[in-house]
Design a protein around this nucleic acid. Structure first.
Lengths: 340, 340
DNA sequence: ACTGGCACTCGCTACAGTCGAGTGCCAGAG
DNA sequence: CTCTGGCACTCGACTGTAGCGAGTGCCAGT
């Protein structure tokens, strides 16, 4: 229960040393590397208490201590101070993102940047369509029975889909269709479109109705319900950093999880009003990731949140550093989006 | 030099057994599992010759033999018969690809399919823009000084880019611009556009020239020169299959290579008239992949080739099976593209 | 409440010995 | 000339033993 200040200091020291050295840390080494002002024996007693409370554990009887997931949690919640980014890092972020020409480019650069700065796996969700507004819809005739539907969202995201029309539609009608859908849908949230789309069908002049129905179906099915979310990933090579000591010796489950878009979305897509989320080991809902930790946050222009981004690494990671980096990158990207 | 038929049969047996068991194979086991019709001693003599010629080697003095890259090469070139796909596999391919609604979808499904069937890492290049023809160019005004340029290629690929205009351009002029670029460029190969684009600028009426210049720059820079090629990847989790025995114990270099688009393009993008290419271990130009083999081929509607696809795995892979799968998938995708 | 001391645990390393798979070579048979 | 059986040899894998040392828990003393 009562964890006095020194015990907390000991826990902090253990976490820091273990993260740095990747080896179980013993009482003697601890008093040497940190100014705790007490003897190893005293530290041992504190350690015994910490172990009893489940914050640290011993891999083997004759080894030092290692933080448990619970220990990391306490560390993150109460013991770590935010580690301010170095000017060099700030500059790197700015420089890296400044050159982006495109939304795709922004996302791409961001994910690489995150991976590089944290030396871990980075995940970035494209601005969610559900949270975007329609800026423009374009219909491009490919043949008399085929249209390419292009949707441009206010976040800069562009999606396209081929539409197979039930019957040939002359060029003039395509113009009408384009005008209609734009009039009705521009400015609305994609998540709010279903009723609007229905109205669109109902209000169409009869000879346009079949085409409009197909068009609407595609609009709803693919743009709203399906593809919906896209994800960018980078830094998987960083998983091999710890020489397989992290992740309980097998990258398999991690790599598998990273291949599933759904899983990734779960990881970083659940954007809550809260600013930043840290999930440590067991706290992950996804079984395959029980050996990993995830630091994630939402991003977007101003206070709005249009998507998530995050970083995945071993539970034994530099939490303060990672948190600072993720937060900073998210803010920069948000500012960048706000400019457009 | 003279490798008589039996020696070749021995080599084939060694490759097959080693691929299957992942363990060095000895003379005794060989005669047991294959009907070679001779005694272990004879096989040993043959093995000695094969080793001298560099087709196999011994990991340790008291171990069995393992094929060398050169051995695999000989096996692929002269000893393996094509392994026909099982009907189940054929059906899987058809079913998997049939549901595709979109080019993106096709590529996405293809890469997953390849990874699943071969149980290795799969790479698919999107239809190369350089090899595509322009079907349509669309300009969507975002603001008075911003246009969204959308290009639709005849392969179904769609690319977009934001264009920052040097000065505001009224809506009417946008229409003119659109007409002009479409008149000039539709139907032409992207790789042939540079001169056409130049002509476009020269022939523009003066007041459109600045806008046209910017537009052309973007067109060339981003669509032709930069993004250019896109790549889809799947199955990285399969790298962990061999329990790190493959790949000389470290996935690091492989994962690193797979993160570089440029590298991937080198892998599968160099599409030659030849139908299918197998690069074994050392034969790879990319240092990081010296421990891996790559089976790649081009694909496209009919005889045209619009992109590449391939599979990467340990040198110790099932070449006949992989080759058959890659070839079959590429053909199906080609047919699918031809239908559009 | 902290400290020094001490006995104890147990993983790691080194070393020796055994086992066995696999080889190379050779003499003899076909 | 080719193949075979036999035999001695090599060397990695595995086992068991022993010593080392980091680290602990506990206790008596300040």
């Amino acid at each position: 229960m009562g964890l006095d200040d020194r015990k907390l200091a000991v826990l902090r020291a253990i976490v820091e040393d273990y993260v740095a050295t990747q080896e179980p840390v013993g009482s003697k080494a601890l008093v040497e590397r940190h100014q705790l002002g007490v003897s190893p024996a005293t530290v041992r007693n504190d350690m015994a208490v910490l172990e009893e409370e489940g914050y640290i554990r011993q891999p083997h009887t004759s080894a030092g201590r290692v933080p448990t997931d619970r220990g990391y949690r306490l560390f993150v919640d109460r013991l770590s101070r935010v580690k301010p980014l170095s000017p060099a890092e700030r500059r790197a972020i700015e420089r890296f993102l400044a050159g982006a020409v495109d939304l795709d480019d922004v996302v791409h650069r961001t994910v690489r940047l995150l991976a590089q700065l944290t030396r871990q796996v980075a995940v970035v969700q494209y601005p969610s369509l559900a949270r975007s507004r329609v800026r423009h819809l374009e219909l491009v005739p490919i043949s008399t029975t085929r249209l390419m539907l292009v949707m441009i969202a206010d976040t800069g995201r562009v999606e396209q889909r081929l539409v197979e029309l039930p019957a040939p539609v002359p060029a003039d009608d395509v113009i009408d269709l384009r005008r209609l859908v734009n009039e009705k849908l521009v400015g609305s949230r994609l998540s709010d479109t279903p009723p609007l789309v229905q109205a669109l069908i109902d209000e169409s002049v009869p000879h346009l109705r079949p085409a409009m129905t197909t068009l609407s179906t595609v609009l709803l099915e693919t743009l709203v319900e399906r593809h919906e979310e896209r994800i960018a990933l980078a830094g998987t090579a960083n998983l091999t950093r710890g020489g397989l000591l992290d992740f309980h010796g097998s990258l398999r489950p991690i790599l598998e999880a990273l291949e599933e878009e759904v899983v990734l979305l779960k990881l970083i897509g659940e954007v809550e009003p809260s600013t930043l989320r840290v999930r440590i080991g067991d706290e992950n809902e996804i079984d395959n990731l029980r050996a990993a930790s995830v630091v994630s946050t939402g991003y977007g222009p101003g206070a709005t949140i249009v998507g998530g981004m995050g970083v995945l690494g071993p539970t034994r990671m530099d939490y303060p550093g990672t948190i600072a980096t993720v937060r900073a990158v998210a803010r920069y990207v948000g500012e960048l989006l706000a400019q457009n």
